[in-house]
Design a protein around this nucleic acid. Structure first.
Length: 1081
DNA sequence: AACTTCACG
DNA sequence: ACGTACGTGAAGTTT
């Protein structure tokens, strides 16, 4: 297989697409969009790395030797990598890449590309997604509205949201996404199938927030105690010995054929028990927590006061510090902090929280006097100076520190100006690597849950289930029953603030033991996971690369540190801009509500009081009397206008209203999992059709518009719009099913418009409550005025997730009606670079399946979906061959229009089908599901699916192999060799087996894409050049990287980013080799 | 807490 | 008997 680069990467050409008006504060705001038509082949990227065995010290490659030598000196190493022009990893060629936006300095907005499209800019140069958007614009004339912001003469173009979803095509059945019904969702708080998991739900809530639950009330889960805690004889050296034993056992290189079975066998052995508790297991079969019954319920601590040296003065601190940095400097240190003044449920630790104490444990044989091996440091009140004394310890990069949920402690310590260095491992991430499916009955990834789990802990050196060192929850130790109003004890337990626990004489000792226990438990957990992961083999492309712990060391450790850095940086948000947006959104919402109410009033007396955001009430209204919905039902609503019920003196807070159906039987689009008619966007849309919504407020609607909305906002822009809209044409096809349900005519039209308005309300609502408001709110906002989300590695496939707030589900660029993404700005003098991969998952599928046809299509480049359509449909292919249509068109200078119509215009339906399949197949969608979406019979859908597979037989074969692997080996692997485990399928239902099959198909694709994104991020993070220029990673959205840095170097930095993303395997593999060699030697 | 709906890749 | 595309986070309402 050719391993060289497949031709040079085309030189990115920046093309100015749109420039904002010069009259506003948006001066100088420029948006660039770059699209590379020629994406290199993934196979080259992913082709086997230089074939190196496990023991590579005798590598013949001189480059490797020099690489290793220079790697020993950290500084030099970075410079060297910077300047190295060629090396073994250059064989790893480009990863597909397309689409890049650079936005200039403050106040920076990503300028809307849509006006550019409207103005006739050639959209062919935009990414395929943008092209799809452009398609959508063909049919949005009727929906067009324009409004302008008063301070900035920024012009927007508004479209109704469903036009984008459907790409503006009449074939409304074809959609990009279908929602996953809740009943089928494996994770999440919802899902009625988690009955057996109820006991741990409360713990699950806090899984990623460390154990710093201060002054918070929550229900506790009782864990049975284990009376026997022992300080067992440990020996830090023995650990190292054991590791080298493990490593020397791995010298044997297996043949590829044996690899899979050997590895999976090992995995199966490792997980005989774990597998049975995988999340995919049906709830009924989930074993309940295996805390030994019959044990005493008395709270027990992992360590006692005899083990702990309390550091509360400078003298002791100095002594302890000397030992930590002297005698024990080479040991692994587990650290943990306790933090006050933070609500972990809401606030980001960046800028919030104050350390009140911390603990350090570096092995059982450490002795800080009197055989005390746990260090506990009080930094409350005047002892705060001890924190400064320990600063050198925390900032010492040579001391290996293990944390549980590192980023939390890192941020809190950063609040005190301490920049933690020497990050060695995060036991939470290790646990996720060990077993990604820990949800439900098995517990969460909290320290408490993990250390209580025999399976997680049995990797410790002197494993003995009797002396399991587990964390005891704070609630168990310090919780007191909350008193109810009548004075009796309630079932709720409450926790005093941690600061109080530390100060109070009655709890101080227990508190110290608890806190020290955290470090001890973290250390033991690390020891166990280290042992277990070291035993698991790590393969990359059938090449044994070492153990999974080495995988952690090579990838996830730097990744974890990088993520903490990103969280720390945060994103700058333009609050004022969001406030403007919110006003507009609220105004439109108000208008829509008033329209809807006006319509409802004709049929129901409750019109003025109905809660339009209540799906239950809407369901009652639209479907009352039909489809299992009772005719009338009463609801409690806020008593807004002080209505006084009969026999009452004062108005009550709530009043009840009677909601009856409109009396017309509407067609029901779909049912919810509960069997009731669904009233989501899909259903409403099919009722309303493509009715246009404009926001020209009529006279009597004015009263609904909030006072504080600028008059200019509401009138100016909209009048213009109306003028440009021209005479209304009667197009009955635009009306949806409600039209005929109302027997057509005006009544039918009104119904459609009203339901469309309802649709708008819901759309606006989600934008306001989901994005506009949380981004303005202070909880996720640090003192630096930046939004700091929490980035977690908590997914089954290895993707990231973002929380508080979730910055990964911001409205997509193309569908962002209120331009919410423009609120993400760079600080003055800075710019943002947003770079995303094009069709990364599909390319990986092509590579993994080694599908000739797909690889060829990617090699040629251009619009992949069009090419798929061509290969699927003979008539399309014929048209292309005859030159009647063009697959894609790259405008050349002097060319205004393509010489022939484009495929995607002429065969739009075909292309959409192909596109749909491209996405669906990788996820394992069935013909049955497609038939539902496309409103065709299952055999017809199957026929289309067969067409897709026709020239891609390898994909089918590969998918079958994955299913088999899931069935036989209980796991599948990503590109980098991460495993996802599955429960034994033989014991599950047919439905569940199907789910496992689809997950097995999807995980290697999604997980490998996550791997590539991670590699790229590590590259970007490590890039000395980017660092020196001041460019920092801010956020990742699965296949999209967002960086911030000085505007003046943006163009250059962009090239570096493109390069790093295009060569994700560069450098990282080298790292792994270095690591491996140094381990063995 | 359960249910439904919605945003993203 | 029911779910039939994967993977997430979050909000609002009602029980």
């Amino acid at each position: 297989m050719a391993m060289g680069m497949h031709g040079p990467v085309p030189i990115p050409r920046l093309r100015r697409v749109c420039c904002s008006p010069s009259s506003s504060h948006l001066d100088g705001c420029t948006s660039y969009r770059w699209h590379s038509a020629n994406c290199a082949l993934p196979t080259e990227t992913l082709s086997r790395p230089p074939s190196l065995g496990f023991k590579v010290s005798q590598s013949t490659d001189n480059d490797w030797r020099s690489l290793e030598e220079s790697a020993r000196k950290d500084k030099n190493e970075r410079n060297r990598r910077h300047h190295r022009q060629i090396g073994p990893n250059d064989l790893a060629a480009n990863t597909p890449f397309s689409g890049l936006v650079v936005v200039n300095g403050r106040p920076t907005k990503m300028t809307d590309t849509r006006p550019a499209i409207r103005e006739g800019y050639d959209v062919a140069r935009l990414s395929p997604e943008a092209n799809d958007l452009a398609e959508g614009f063909g049919n949005t004339e009727a929906c067009r509205a324009r409004f302008s912001s008063p301070s900035a003469s920024l012009q927007f173009r508004k479209t109704s949201s469903w036009d984008h979803i459907n790409g503006g095509n009449k074939c409304s059945a074809v959609q990009q996404t279908t929602s996953t019904s809740n009943a089928t969702r494996i994770n999440g708080a919802s899902g009625g199938k988690q009955l057996a998991c109820k006991a741990v739900v409360d713990v699950l809530e806090h899984q990623d927030t460390d154990e710093h639950f201060n002054s918070m009330n929550f229900v506790t889960k009782h864990l049975d105690g284990d009376e026997n805690v022992g300080s067992t004889s440990h020996d830090t050296d023995s650990l190292d010995r054991r590791v080298s034993d493990i490593q020397s056992n791995q010298e044997v290189l297996l043949q590829p054929a044996e690899n899979v079975s050997a590895l999976s066998k090992m995995a199966a052995e490792d997980h005989t028990q774990v597998d049975s508790s995988n999340r995919l297991t049906e709830a009924a079969e989930l074993p309940l927590s295996d805390n030994s019954p019959g044990q005493s319920n008395v709270a027990r601590l992992a360590c006692t006061a005899d083990d702990i040296i309390i550091v509360d003065n400078i003298a002791t601190a100095t002594t302890v510090l000397a030992k930590l940095r002297g005698e024990y400097k080479d040991a692994v240190h587990a650290c943990d902090t306790e933090v006050a003044d933070i609500d972990v449920k809401k606030e980001s630790p960046v800028g919030h929280g104050r350390v009140i104490c911390f603990s350090i444990y570096c092995g059982p044989n450490a002795d800080f006097g009197d055989r005390k091996n746990c260090v506990w440091v009080d930094v409350l009140d005047s002892n705060i100076e001890l924190l400064n004394i320990f600063r050198e310890y925390f900032e010492d990069s040579s001391i290996k520190k293990v944390w549980h949920n590192f980023s939390f402690d890192r941020h809190v310590l950063a609040n005190h100006g301490i920049r933690v260095a020497g990050f060695y491992a995060d036991t939470m991430q290790l646990a996720r690597l060990w077993h990604s499916g820990r949800k439900g009955a098995e517990g969460s990834y909290s320290l408490e849950s993990l250390t209580s789990d025999m399976k997680a802990m049995n990797g410790v050196y002197d494993w003995d289930s009797q002396t399991l060192t587990k964390k005891t929850s704070m609630m168990e130790l310090f919780g007191t029953k909350k008193l109810k109003k009548d004075g009796t004890e309630g079932s709720m337990k409450v926790l005093p603030p941690v600061e109080e626990l530390q100060r109070s004489e009655t709890t101080r000792e227990r508190w110290i033991c608890y806190s020290s226990g955290d470090a001890l438990c973290t250390w033991r957990l690390w020891e166990s996971l280290y042992g277990q992961l070291s035993k698991r083999k790590w393969y990359f492309q059938n090449d044994l690369r070492g153990s999974m712990y080495e995988f952690y060391d090579t990838y996830w450790r730097p990744f974890g540190e990088l993520l903490a850095d990103m969280e720390g940086h945060g994103m700058l948000v333009d609050i004022e801009y969001l406030a403007e947006i919110e006003k507009i959104a609220c105004k439109e919402r108000a208008i829509s509500i008033s329209r809807f109410r006006k319509w409802v009033a004709k049929y129901c007396s409750c019109a003025d009081y109905i809660n339009v955001t209540s799906d239950a009430q809407i369901r009652q209204l639209l479907f009352g009397g039909f489809k299992n919905v009772s005719k009338c039902r009463s609801f409690k609503v806020p008593n807004v206008d002080g209505y006084i019920e009969e026999g009452k003196k004062a108005p009550l807070k709530f009043r009840s209203i009677e909601v009856c159906g409109i009396g017309v039987k509407l067609p029901c689009h779909s049912l919810t999992s509960g069997g009731l008619p669904a009233v989501g966007m899909q259903s409403l849309k099919s009722l309303a059709g493509k009715v246009s919504i404009d926001y020209v407020a009529t006279e009597d609607e004015e009263e609904f518009i909030p006072e504080d909305v600028d008059a200019e906002l509401t009138s100016g822009g909209i009048k213009d719009c109306k003028a440009s809209k021209g005479p209304k044409q009667e197009d009955l096809s635009a009306y949806g099913q409600a039209y005929s349900a109302f027997k057509g005519g005006e009544e039918g039209k009104e119904a459609c418009k009203a339901i469309a308005a309802l649709c708008e309300i819901s759309a606006i609502d989600t934008l306001i409550s989901g994005f506009i408001q949380p981004l303005q709110g202070g909880d996720s906002m640090g003192p630096d005025n930046r939004v700091h989300c929490s980035l977690n590695l908590n997914t089954e496939t290895g993707r990231l997730s973002a929380r508080r707030p979730n910055l990964q589900n911001q409205p997509a660029l193309e569908k962002d009606r209120y331009k919410i993404r423009q609120a993400f700005i760079a600080s003055p003098g800075n710019s943002l670079i947003v770079a995303d991969y094009g069709q990364l998952e599909l390319r990986l599928l092509a590579h993994l399946a080694d599908c000739k046809s797909m690889l060829e299509a990617f090699k040629i480049g251009g619009d992949f979906h069009s090419r798929t359509a061509m290969n699927m449909f003979a008539n399309v292919k014929a048209a292309v061959e005859k030159g009647e249509v063009l697959l894609e068109w790259e405008p050349k200078p002097g060319q205004d229009s393509p010489p022939a119509p484009l495929l995607k215009d002429v065969y739009a339906a075909e292309r959409r089908k192909a596109k749909m399949l491209n996405f669906s197949i990788a996820y394992g969608k069935t013909a049955r599901g497609l038939s539902k979406d496309w409103k065709v019979t299952t055999p017809e859908a199957q026929e289309t699916v067969n067409l897709w597979y026709k020239d891609r037989p390898e994909v089918r074969k590969w998918q079958e192999a994955q299913k088999k692997s899931a069935r036989d080996n209980h796991c599948v692997y990503t590109l980098l060799g991460r495993a996802r485990h599955f429960p034994d399928v033989s014991s599950t239902s047919e439905f569940h087996r199907g789910r496992i099959d689809r997950a097995a198909i999807n995980t290697p694709v999604q997980g490998s894409a996550a791997d590539v994104a991670m590699l790229a991020m590590i590259e970007l993070w490590r890039s000395v050049e980017l660092k020196e220029l001041g460019w920092k990673l801010l956020l990742q959205v699965h296949d999209e990287m967002i960086l911030e840095g000085p505007t003046k170097t943006a163009a250059y930095a962009k090239d570096l980013v493109v390069k790093a993303m295009s060569h994700p395997f560069e450098g990282v593999l080298a790292k792994s080799e270095i690591k491996r060699r140094s381990c063995v030697l």
